[in-house]
Structures are given as C-alpha cells and as structure tokens.
Design a protein around this nucleic acid. Structure first.
Lengths: 220, 220
DNA sequence: GCCGGTTTCAAACAAATGTTTTATTCTCCC
DNA sequence: GGGAGAATAAAACATTTGTTTGAAACCGGC
C-alpha cells in the first residue's frame, strides 16, 4: 500500500467534496465511489469504513489548509502586531474560502462549519493539532496589540469575536448571498472582506481594552 | 383538525428538539414519534411527510423566538441607538441560547445554524418573514449610531460582523466549551457575553466609520 | 514464467427508515 | 344511540445504504 496511491487519493478528493457539501450522513459511499471512479468496496478496503474515510478526509483537509495558508501568511514574524492580525484574518478567509484552500461554500469549507456544530470523534485530534495552536497564536497577537495581557476575561472573548466573524462568512454565505449579494464571499472579494473584519476587530479590541467589564458572575 | 391539537403539539415539540440536536437527515420519525408518545403514522397523518413536519417546526420555532425575544427587547423605541444595539444583541443571545428561547446547543438553536449552512426549501419563507426585517432593524440602528448613512459598503459588513459574533457563539459552543469553558454560552452568562459583543461592536463601528475602505473592486 | 500478496470488482446481505395500508377506536352531531 | 368522519394503531412495503464476500486481475520478485 504505497501511499499517495492514486485510488486512495481520488477517493479522498471526491470524499472531501461530497462530505463538505452534503455532510456526513447525507453523503453516501456510492456517490463518493462514483465521483472518484472507483468501486464501492475500494473505499472499505482502503479506509475500513465510512467513518474511517471521514477521519482521513478531515485530517487531510486541515493539514492542507494550514500548510497552504499558515496564520502568519507571507509576513515577517517581527512585523507589528496589527499587521500580524491582518495576516491572520486574511489567512483565515483564504483558507476557508479560496478554491486553493477549502473552496468555500462549494467545497470543504463547510466541512469545518459542520464540525463546529457536530464535532465528530475524529475532530478531537484535529482540535489539538491545529485549532488550539492557532488560537494561541491569535491570543498572542491580541496581547501584543494591547501592549499588556488584559487577562482571560477580555482575551478569550476577543479571540472568539474575531474568529466568529470569519467563520460566519463561511457558514452563512448562502444566506448572505440572498440578503446582500455583494458581501457574500467570492474568490474576488476576500481581501476586501478580510480588511473589513480586520478594521472592525481593531476597533473592537481598542474598545474592550479601555472598558471595565461587568464582574464575571453577573446578576443584573 | 382543531388546531393546537394535543397530538400535533406534542409532535412539534419533540420534532423541534430532535431536528435541532440531530439535524434533518439524522432525525428519524421513529425517534420523534417515540419521544412524542405518538404512533409513527400520526406524523404522516398530521404533517403529510417528514419534510412537511420540518417546515412546520421551522415556522413555529422562528415565530416563538421572535415573539418571545423581539429585537427591541424591553426597551423604549426612542432610546439612544447604542442602547438599542445592546438590546438587539441581548435579544439575539437570549433568543438563540436561553431555555425559554431556542435552548442553545441542547435544542433548537442549532436548527437555525443548520439552516444557515444548508437552507431548506422551508427556509425561504422564514427568511422574508423574520430575518430580513430583523436585518433592516439592525441596519437602522447602525445608521443612528454613526449619525449618517455611510452607504452599503460599510453598513452591510458591520451588520454581518455583529450578527456573526452572536451566531458563532451558538454555532461553535461545543468547541468553545473545549477551548475556553468559561466563555461557552450558558443560561447564566448570556448577559456578560452580550455585553462583551456589544462593546466590541461599538468599537468596530466607530473604527469603520472613520476608515476609508479599499475600493470595492480590489486588485491588491 | 510463476507465485505471493495486494488491489479491484460485481454481487449479495442486512439493517435502517420514510411511507402506505388497513383496521380499529374515538368524537361529536343529528 | 347510531353513524359519519376524524384520529390512532400495528404491520407491511419499498427503498436506500453501509458493509461483506468471494472471485478475478494486477504486480513485483525470484
């Protein structure tokens, strides 16, 4: 079983597409096999079962996305933190949306959104290997922007707000297209959308830095 | 077929829960029937088929959410726009997350997230009836905060960023819980999270208002 | 050239699931 | 109180779908 086996590769490719657009349950082995021009049994032979295939797809998709579009996207490590945030957000948009990455709504980008909603058993590994380090990177950038560590009560929600905006564009693009077609993500407007989210987030961070938040145990 | 028929009501209740947690395809009418303590055939009898049931659930869920937690939540219409934004965001959090609303991750809140990802045929109606007016309300608030209408290039992305943050908390709460348990939405911290998103967004709006954005057709 | 293991293939299997059917029970109105 | 229509129940049906099986084809090494 030499790796990057052509059959295996074709299956992974087709599966990424089908799992992304239809979701785990709606995707059928038969459709994947047909798209990959492969016999049904080949899938079970190479990946044990449907879940095994899904796990392999997930790992491959994350690996691809984070190597092709790393969080510090074409940027010197000593760049000023605001530019690093811009690169971080741009990388996220490109990773999620571009054809070269997860292909946005038509493709595997949705696979990630689905995992956020219903984490699969295979997601746990991906979480530790890719997502947590990615989050730490963002947190470090926010600290640098603020100049001091404001503590987790401000840090984490900032990170969530930033990531949330990026993911939402990927998640809701069918609906965004219906309500405001110009702002639905496409290959052409990723830079514009990323720049917007960047500016918006810089404003948000600044505001949060100055604010005194209600105590954690709120009983308003 | 007198309405709020007890059987019909029980089915709707159970279906909302099951569809929300499992999604359309994973939910089986047998499970729903069992939870509702109803014969399987009763579902087809009252709702024609599985899709008909789903449509009814969707309509009922949106109606409930937007009447119980309207966007101007317990607030005078002439309140200052910043407070109106705060109320808007709080309403969204409560609608999505509270037990009395869509019950967050355990319940029907996920149903909405699923619709954003894969809009069903039944979603179209809900979009016109509930979501578009809701969006218009937010846009009006943003205009009031800025003092002038900045044009759609700034308005719509602001609205998307704000809504995106709220939805993301609902969508990703399983993952947020794993990464930063304190900030996963619960019945108790909704006010705190909403206040955070409000402040962050106020900062974002201010920043965007002052910024000159790249031209729409960007070719950096 | 042939033999071992690997890979592919077509067909069959078994389980799950939406829907329909047919009979029975219930409910209300005359 | 009886009957017509609505509502419920149990069982059967047809389809989809993940998986397995057993045979055929392929391939590298001796």
């Amino acid at each position: 079983m030499s790796d990057n086996h052509p059959t295996k590769k074709r299956i992974l490719e087709a599966a990424g597409e089908i799992f992304g657009t239809k979701g785990f349950k709606d995707a059928t082995i038969r459709t994947i096999a047909k798209d990959a021009k492969v016999n049904i049994a080949a899938i079970n032979y190479h990946f044990r079962d449907k879940e095994g295939l899904y796990g392999a797809v997930l790992e491959e998709v994350f690996h691809l996305g984070f190597t092709r579009f790393p969080a510090n996207m074409d940027l010197a490590a000593n760049a000023d933190p605001q530019q690093r945030l811009k690169a971080f957000i741009r990388a996220m948009f490109y990773r999620l949306q571009s054809k070269e990455g997860w292909g946005g709504i038509g493709g595997r980008g949705r696979l990630i959104a689905r995992e956020l909603l219903d984490p699969s058993p295979a997601f746990e590994a991906v979480l530790d290997r890719y997502i947590k380090p990615h989050k730490d990177m963002l947190v470090a950038i926010i600290i640098d922007i603020m100049g001091t560590d404001p503590g987790p009560e401000k840090l984490m929600p900032c990170a969530i707000s930033i990531i949330g905006q990026c993911i939402y564009y990927a998640l809701a693009s069918p609906v965004i297209r219906k309500i405001s077609a110009d702002n639905a993500p496409t290959e052409e407007n990723l830079d514009r959308l990323a720049e917007f989210v960047w500016l918006f987030s810089l404003g948000g961070i600044a505001k949060i830095q100055d604010a005194t938040l209600s105590p954690t145990k709120d009983a308003v």
